[in-house]
Design a protein around this nucleic acid. Sequence first.
DNA 1: CAGCCGCCTTGATCCTGATCAACCGGGCGA
DNA 2: TCGCCCGGTTGATCAGGATCAAGGCGGCTG
Lengths: 256, 256
Amino acid sequence: MRLGDRDLEAVRSHRSAETRCEVCPIRRRAVCAYCEPDDLEELDSFKSYRRFEAGETIAWAGERMSMVGSVVTGVAMLSRTLADGRRQMVGLLLPSDFLGRPGRAQNAYDVVAATETVFCMFQKPEFERLVARMPQIERRLLQMTLDELDSAREWMLLLGRKTAREKIASLFVIMARRDAALQREPKPGTLVFPLYITREAMADYLGLTIETVSRQISALRRDGVVELCENRTVRVPDLLRLIDESGDDADGGVLS
Amino acid sequence: MRLGDRDLEAVRSHRSAETRCEVCPIRRRAVCAYCEPDDLEELDSFKSYRRFEAGETIAWAGERMSMVGSVVTGVAMLSRTLADGRRQMVGLLLPSDFLGRPGRAQNAYDVVAATETVFCMFQKPEFERLVARMPQIERRLLQMTLDELDSAREWMLLLGRKTAREKIASLFVIMARRDAALQREPKPGTLVFPLYITREAMADYLGLTIETVSRQISALRRDGVVELCENRTVRVPDLLRLIDESGDDADGGVLS
DNA sequence: CAGCCGCCTTGATCCTGATCAACCGGGCGA
DNA sequence: TCGCCCGGTTGATCAGGATCAAGGCGGCTG
């Protein structure tokens, strides 16, 4: 598949080693955790890039999934749906996140592109052969999976025990941190970041309805905690205030 | 540390290779996923067994954790607490489950023994050396972590979208399946299994209050979905009925 | 045996977030 | 240009689960 210039730029930056998070400077994250420089030539021949439109379904729960890979640009959502249609997002894939489970044929979740999204993908059998030959890939996958597990557990705390207002504040903190982590040169000072996703996606993420999401965002705006600018952009004048609203204790808490 | 006869019996059976789950016969689970028979001699010299009393705190969030290991008998709980004391259980460790994160010094969760619990433990540096030497251990850890991630996501669906009644039914389904999976020779017919944990633990697990837990269990009993016997034992006359109450679709759903 | 404590149950009331409904504004195709 | 549709906002009302409160039961200890 032929990629456009913007996508190619993304692919190039995708190969960079690490970025730093301004909000929690300790935490670092490789943009593509299994592609370290010394593996590049070996992996490059097996990679392919695929692009999905916003709203496009990448995979259905229960379907066979023939590829694995990671997000280069854009946002993808993992979700599960109950028999009567209630839906819960169970994962949010931002650039550098891995999609697909080595060693399992079936896909456990619906995967939908929230925005236009580019994936760096491998055929699953080829990837598994690569993993078998290169144990360092397995090690990095384990670390990534453990990180995801930590995020999932933080999310469980949010879903089980936080109020609607705290949930919204937490979401903003998470997105601000993730955005800062992905910035090559994060700007100091006031945080400004894009809200990639719709109210519906936020509601599915937080276990709320869209009406409640809308109301609580309005309330946070009314109280001066956040400002909404054009292009679905959020400005946070005081990050500590926002973190305070999120219910987490100042130090620990939300994993980026 | 000296173990009693009952504990020694548990340790012996702990070395058995696999058990089968009557409820979902496809799913199998090694009782101790990193201890396959061919590794036994090598690992044995590094193992030690530790016992914790019911209610005893095994580790605090934020603390350094010098050991890793897995549950031999009993039940342990992972939980996170918000600044104001609201608590959410984020993991339930039953026999065969792994505790501790290779490659991280600090413990992210409070770990509490729900019942008397025996762990098979390794000093973390030794375990990491073993892992480095034996890549098959890393592979199994990856698979276990992926399983845990799937469970966590199933749990997120429960926390975000299920009603109190569905949450209770789901919990019973999970415990029935886990119990059946751990039975050496599961009895066919009506399911009977122990409720290892208190109402408080259930409430923390499900994101409810103890009063709601109590009320919903009473309601399920009144409606004939479950029966409560002595010794905190639950009898399920019709598993399909219970699964129906849990809100999951019949096939997919709750991971054991 | 009495008294206490921990765990559980049940009742009454309250409140947060869901539901139902109306409306707004922008983008897009007819 | 009109009208529709989609995503978002806001209001009114409802209901599920939280909270507050009282009491029961069983086990443990003095």
